[in-house]
């Protein structure tokens, strides 16, 4: 696949929107990877948390919205608690999910939870 890096208006708008929604400075990530190293669900993810932030930095909206990772993040905040730059990555993931929703990308809703589970699930 040929990748063309372009940081035009559209990309910047996307990055700014993510920053605004999440309240996080995505530029400050220096890609140490600690979020991914500690993520309990990383083994299920198609892109790791550090890659998620990287793709935001690159303005790759489509790749992000298409990723499974968005809905694997359990919002456990382990990444946030250890990030050397204090980025709340779960917040960033939530912001991307927020943008993904109107584009028809969503996870399953409460009505899809099997009845025997719904009875017990908190």
């Amino acid at each position: 696949m040929r990748t063309i890096l372009k940081l035009g208006k559209q990309e910047h708008r996307f990055i700014d929107r993510i920053s605004e929604l999440s309240g996080e400075n995505v530029y400050s990530c220096y890609q140490c990877g600690r979020c991914s190293a500690g993520c309990p669900m990383a083994f299920e993810m198609d892109i790791l948390p550090n890659q998620l932030i990287r793709l935001v930095q690159l303005g790759e909206e489509e790749a992000l919205i298409a990723s499974k990772t968005l809905f694997i993040c359990a919002s456990c905040f382990t990444c946030q608690s250890r990030c050397p730059k204090g980025i709340n990555i779960a917040n960033v993931a939530e912001a991307i999910r927020y943008l993904a929703e109107p584009k028809g990308k969503d996870h399953f809703g409460p009505d899809e939870v099997p009845a025997e589970l719904a009875d017990e699930l908190p």
């Binding site: 990877g33 991914s36 190293a37 500690g38 250890r82």
Partner: peptide
């Protein structure tokens, strides 16, 4: 290996390191 380690713990007499290869 390029990545920062997030967790180190012991299991039996082995130490387990959780890192990442970015």
């Amino acid at each position: 290996v390029r990545g920062k380690v997030s967790k180190v713990y012991k299991e039996g007499d082995k130490i387990i390191v959780w890192g990442v290869d970015t």
